[in-house]
Design a protein around this nucleic acid. Structure first.
Lengths: 218, 218, 218, 218
DNA sequence: AATGAATGAGTGTTCATTCAT
DNA sequence: TATGAATGAACACTCATTCAT
């Protein structure tokens, strides 16, 4: 009970550079903590694990949502970077590589996964993400690598579906997603021999995420 | 002892005969409320919406987890019933119908979706679910309707993936899942012309669900 | 996440330096509140009376039990200190003084009394308490001040019996315990060396029990 | 138990006599339940154990307090009956016998003990109790069996003190109270006429405290 | 700038009590 | 008359957020 908070007079003052490092550590730790405990994990836990004060986190992020948003932004940026690396693949396999690499990434950074695709909703990063996905699809079409009726939206939704698998397998190292992606890509492939009926037309409109409903409804 | 609880004079007491009806309403309302607000929605809200007192819910369910478990059980039972209806389909399309119907069901009952596949874990209902899925797959194999290397596990994972789509589209009526399922089933289909590489071998083991992360059973 | 907790603008924030003082006030108030309303008194009430937020109490004590345990520990420590002060009394009256002083103490700090002797059970403090009681008894034996067959256990039980009197007289300032202790000590005394002082005069008036305080304070 | 009345082949209606029996069973069960779990035990538990409906208890007793009060009244009545049996003991040992027998009784009926002496407060039964205690004391005085300055109040307080011992030893079968009463009576005794029998040997072992009875750590 | 003590709204859960059957 | 379903106030406890130091 006796709270022995002995003031350490000799503690070195944090330098500006440290502040930068702090920010990164906070983000990394938040990723890990949320991945381990879910988004309900407390900010306190993040602060403790990051070795910073609670206030420090709140200095960088207006609130918990903002921290999560940052996680999402960084993740999204990485997926876009992956896409851009494969935008000019010459064998029409850029799309395939994009999907495998992004899923690989998501399987290692599951912290903000639960809100990755719903939160960003219509933000600029999602827009950019859709853009590159469409380009990857266009490229694949050019090489006749995929069904003629496949769209960029199908790619986006494919990632949502993989997210579902990662969600169920949270906490395990199982990568069931890989095999399912194999199967899905088989369905993506151009296949003149098969289709007995045309695909259900894309009906996806703007996802209406009720922001205020999520988070600590508690 | 002197518990000064003032009875609410406005709302009429429920009649004994309504007890059964109450239980059903609670479950239906819980489904709807959790679907709308996520599993973090308060029991209080469920009670309010169901027009019953808080205690009434706790009379039927030991705690929040038990209520969610009931939702899951009912949902799982329905998916099994669907499977059983298609166990003897004569054209090898039982599996396909099962998947569409189950997804249709899940898209209308999203309340407990977030924990549907992870919570039941190794319970008897999941076991039965796997069983019928395997039988559906076996039937499909008999008719040469699906790839020779497709297993019951692939079917289970397919549902996880659809769950991901439903999760992202929560709150909207969009049924993006249908088109994605079309594509996935194309991949399931036997296709001697195509396969560029063998499927990633099934690696799914027991899903280790970190119970403590789940809901706030407190 | 969007936790709309509106800060109370009226009461000034506590200063960091007051932290220590806060802890002490919490403990003192808890003592008083439990003494007045019994251990069923709510933590909320303690917080209110102490002029701190509910969370402040939970910052110091893991839960209500921990708070009560602290009260018990402090009380027990005081009784041990009393014993130690009389361990070397030279006239064989250490035991007697110990008993009167401890009872005096208990009569002013009744908050945790109900669980004082049962909770600590076999903890280290109780062990120490028994130890010093035995030493006091040994000393008294050396001076022939008490019956030869009297043991340390009898002393422990004597305190339990006084606790019973304090329990019944809770809420009143009556110190019926004093006269009863006089009588008990007469029984303790070696029958050859008789009463050194007259009995405390009976002062018991109507016990004013605060009915509304008992029962489910809950 | 049910009285002779001809075997009723149709629905067995509860007879008046059964109602009587019910009441007794409720009271006995309440005693036992409160003794086992403390006065915080729920009425529901009492009803269940007694094999009656909740409403039946509330038909007999206005509220929980009334049930406890009944327990107290019956207990008090028994102590008075004991006193009356010893009112005319011819050797001046009525008081002593009264005390041992009452304590024996209390040690077997601890259900309402916690409120026995405080609740009744100034009720008529307490008044009668004090009356007989005074008569017992008067008789003892007549025989020169006790100190001249001993009063009826001392006897009442003596019982409070034993209650304290029973409280601490709740849940254990230890009867530490007996030896302490021996000692106390030594103090009561006229100092010229000494111990008539040796002290009850100390039998105190580890007090087995039933943690679950304690407070509501929830 | 960084810290962490303080705050209190919100949530799960219990249980005395009521009353329709 | 007996039953037990229904009710909701009350309580322990958590955690996002603020702000004095």
């Amino acid at each position: 009970m006796s709270n022995n908070s002995a003031p350490n007079p000799s503690r070195p003052r944090k330098l500006r550079a440290d502040a930068e490092a702090n920010l990164d550590r906070i983000i990394d730790v938040a990723e890990a903590v949320f991945a381990e405990h879910g988004l309900d994990a407390s900010i306190d836990l993040v602060a403790k694990r990051a070795g910073v004060g609670l206030g420090t986190i709140y200095r960088r992020f207006a609130n918990k949502d903002a921290l999560v948003a940052e996680l999402i932004d960084r993740l999204l940026a990485e997926t876009i970077a992956i896409a851009e690396r494969h935008l000019h693949d010459t064998h029409g396999d850029g799309l395939t590589r994009y999907l495998y690499e992004v899923c690989e990434l998501l399987s290692t950074k599951r912290g903000a996964l639960a809100r990755l695709w719903s939160d960003a909703a219509n933000g600029p990063m999602i827009t950019r993400s859709r853009e590159v996905q469409q380009q990857l699809v266009a490229n694949a079409h050019r090489h006749g690598a995929i069904r003629a009726d496949l769209t960029g939206e199908d790619v986006a939704v494919a990632l949502w579906s993989i997210h579902g698998i990662l969600d169920v397998t949270r906490g395990s190292t199982v990568n069931a997603w890989r095999r399912q992606l194999d199967l899905l890509l088989l369905g993506f492939a151009d296949n003149t021999a098969i289709p007995t009926h045309p695909l259900t037309p894309a009906a996806m409109t703007a996802i209406i995420t009720n922001k205020s409903d999520r988070g600590n409804a508690r």
